[in-house]
Write a protein that binds this DNA or RNA. Structure first.
Length: 718
DNA sequence: TCCGAGGGCGCC
DNA sequence: AAACGGCGCCCGCGGA
């Protein structure tokens, strides 16, 4: 198959990072400096505006490329068009090359994206980073990049120039350097393309649908956004003014963490952090009234979830649709990630029922009014965020999500029969929900009749929900306490450990599956070319990659796998330093052992063991570190592999649902991991049909108990 | 003035 | 035996 490799360099008054490619491309001030292109391994050519009137050979060359490639005629029939982050090239082509320069528009299915291919192999998404990770000797031109960033935006008018006119860094030397940079990018893109696996058929089609969904965008209630912004502006000023007054001007903004900490220390309340937990903790203490109020203000305004509104409006096109909100295969497991205003992490409202009245109040744009009616305006606005996107006039939002899909997948993969049955019973209305059942097992309590469970809400949270969420991927006390904190559950580390032990005893197959996964991965690394299984998962090493094959047939990639010694997060019990013995308690007096005045007597001191660090041969591979963003060593153990397998498979279930729903006439506008959102004409379809489509089991997922719940409304909601 | 790492927060 | 994971955006801060 013939391929056209292409890269545009552009300039604009619009800040691409703030708006995204769609708003950028539709702006009249956005234009192209040049395009570099190559056919297969042929020479890299350059096109610049005005070439259409240049020497006849240049025109013929360009026409040949456009005619043959875009229409797919002659020797270039069915030509593919390849770009790195093709969304950008697609948007520029559709909005500028077509309308302004007369280029014919390619068919959507002609496009390929090397960034999507790189991400599907768990390689860094950036063109330069990717070529480095692949060890190629074709590199991005770093000086050229600096120049490109300079030429991409207007320069300041010089003395004597019209201060209101638009000027660019535009001279022959710079242009030539930019052209060279652009051509070099095509060289690099072409080189990495040769080292990347093509997306398999289903994934390529899914990426094409992803591009359609990103092009479609989602309707934004821009009036509501603007009124909300007015309120946020006023309410933030209230808080900052009060803050300045309370602190005598030493803290001016609620977001200035360092200033706040310094001020608190000066008031005799030192704190290492101002995150939610610490603030809540501090508010529980006896505090001077001004300090208390400052911390309350931090609790109110620290979240600033409302900042999303700026990002939402900045990315909204002239037709009131926000586009480019999803990134295909951003996670190595295959999940999409949210971009720009990040539709995948909008705050869940605390009080769902109040949201319609909140939206009505925010629609007035009056902070006073909102404050009078509902209290803290920032909290009210943040509860309205989901509702700022939704259905355009004449349409409705259908949305549905898979219930506890990860918990169900763990049980399915591990073949934990009692649990699969529990999910089926619950779905059939003849069983307790899984959190009741787990709590019953942990507490050794019969959960009782379905309509009158004997498990209290508190027991369900602490002994049901938290263990289920924390322990499925080999989590320990640390994981337990992290989840417990989120759900406001307080338990001792000792109790958390007991629950862990009990939970594992109830889930022998799950525990075995962790160990099997780890062993299979190690075997695969040791024996390239041979496939090793752990239940429904298979591992195989080939070339520089370890592949984890999922039931769907898709593989999760682990680049440059090897075994490496790693320090474990636990220590040995080791040799006995001092045995268990009795000592005076020490709490009652400072006297010698056996003192008559002591009232509390002796206490037992536990044995002390020498605790040594533990090193273990571990599965190691290269990846972009989640925290440092560096391409560096990553380690995997059984629980992590289980997590990857489950998350990746949940994504495959989601992907099939997206395709099925779209093909049935429900245009998809968002995907939120286990939730599909579509915008559908009011007179089309039904929620029942929509849910039915989503709940249809993929042919490779026999025996997986799927359940969905959903809603139909004018606005997006939870 | 621009950048990048890190703190903080939100979601599944 | 022992280990939850996957993301993105905003912000103030310090260094180039």
């Amino acid at each position: 198959m013939t391929a056209l490799h292409i890269d545009f360099e552009t300039r604009s008054t619009v800040d691409l990072r703030k708006t995204g490619v769609y708003v950028y491309a539709e702006d009249a001030n956005t234009d192209v400096w040049c395009a570099a292109w190559a056919i297969d391994d042929g020479p890299v050519n350059l096109w610049v505006p005005g070439d259409d009137t240049g020497p006849i050979e240049r025109i013929r060359e360009r026409n040949d490329m456009l005619g043959a490639v875009v229409h797919g005629n002659g020797r270039w029939k069915g030509c593919e068009i390849v770009a790195h982050n093709a969304s950008f090239e697609r948007a520029i082509w559709a909005n500028i090359m077509g309308p302004r320069y007369g280029w014919p528009i390619p068919k959507p299915e002609q496009w390929r994206c090397t960034m999507a291919m790189a991400m599907a192999m768990a390689l860094p998404p950036g063109l330069g980073d990717c070529s480095k990770a692949l060890g190629l000797n074709v590199h991005k031109d770093d000086d050229g990049k600096r120049l490109m960033l300079q030429m991409a935006k207007p320069r300041r008018p010089r003395k004597g120039e019209d201060p209101d006119a638009l000027f660019w860094w535009d001279d022959e030397e710079r242009r030539q350097k930019l052209y060279a940079y652009c051509k070099q990018d095509v060289e690099v893109e072409r080189a990495i393309e040769q080292h990347l696996l093509p997306l398999r058929k289903q994934e390529l089609e899914l990426w094409h649908l992803d591009q359609t969904i990103n092009d479609r965008g989602i309707y934004v209630d821009t009036d509501l956004c603007r009124h909300a912004l007015q309120i946020v502006d006023v309410a933030t000023n209230w808080l900052n003014d009060e803050l300045a007054e309370l602190t005598d001007g030493s803290v001016t903004k609620i977001t200035a963490v360092a200033q706040l900490c310094a001020w608190l220390a000066a008031q005799g309340i030192p704190t290492e952090s101002l995150d939610k937990a610490h603030v809540t903790d501090l508010l529980g203490q006896d505090l001077p009234s001004n300090v208390r109020r400052v911390l309350e203000i931090r609790a109110e305004g620290g979240g600033a979830a409302v900042k999303k509104i700026d990002a939402l409006l900045a990315g909204t096109c002239r037709d009131s649709r926000a586009r480019g909100l999803l990134q295909f295969h951003a996670a190595s497991t295959g999940r999409w990630a949210g971009r720009r205003f990040q539709p995948q992490n909008i705050k869940r409202p605390k009080n769902k029922k109040a949201v319609p009245s909140y939206i009505e109040a925010v629609g007035t744009g009056s902070a006073d009014f909102v404050s009078l009616l509902h209290g803290d305006p920032l909290a009210v606005v943040s509860d309205c965020l989901r509702g700022m996107v939704g259905a355009s006039p004449g349409n409705a939002i259908y949305a549905a999500d898979f219930s506890n899909i990860e918990g169900r997948l763990i049980a399915w993969f591990a073949d934990e029969q009692w649990k699969l049955q529990a999910f089926r019973d619950f779905d059939a209305g003849v069983g307790h929900d899984i959190y009741h059942i787990t709590a019953g097992k942990i507490l050794g309590k019969d959960p009782g009749p379905i309509d009158a469970p004997t498990i209290t809400d508190e027991e369900r949270q602490g002994s049901g929900k938290v263990p289920e969420l924390a322990l499925g991927y080999q989590g320990g006390v640390g994981a337990f306490q992290n989840i417990a904190k989120v759900y406001g559950v307080v338990v001792s580390d000792e109790r958390a450990d007991e629950i862990k032990v009990q939970w594992r005893a109830e889930h022998p197959n799950t525990v075995q599956w962790w160990y099997d996964l780890e062993q299979a991965a190690k075997d695969a690394i040791a024996n390239p070319g041979t496939t090793y299984h752990a239940g429904r998962i298979a591992f195989r090493k080939a070339g520089s990659f370890l592949y984890m094959r999922l039931p769907s047939g898709r593989a999760i990639c682990y680049p440059y796998p090897c075994m490496k010694r790693k320090l474990m997060p636990w220590t040995t019990q080791g040799a006995l330093i001092s045995p268990e013995h009795s000592e005076p308690c020490g709490n009652c007096c400072g006297h010698d052992a056996g003192c008559d005045e002591c009232t509390m007597g002796y206490v037992t001191v536990p044995a002390v063991y020498e605790q040594l660090p533990v090193w273990k041969d571990s599965i190691c591979y290269k990846g972009v570190d989640q925290f440092t963003r560096q391409w560096t060593d990553q380690f995997a153990h059984g629980g992590l592999l289980a997590n990857n397998a489950v998350q990746g498979t949940a994504r495959d279930v989601e992907a099939e649902a997206i395709v099925r729903v779209e093909n049935a006439g429900y245009p998809v506008v968002l995907s939120v991991h286990d939730e599909v959102v579509s915008e559908t004409p009011e007179d089309f379809g039904s929620l029942d049909e929509f849910k039915q489509l989503m709940a249809t089991l993929p042919e490779w997922a026999e025996g997986l108990p799927l359940a969905v719940s959903g809603f139909c409304d004018r606005r997006y909601k939870k």
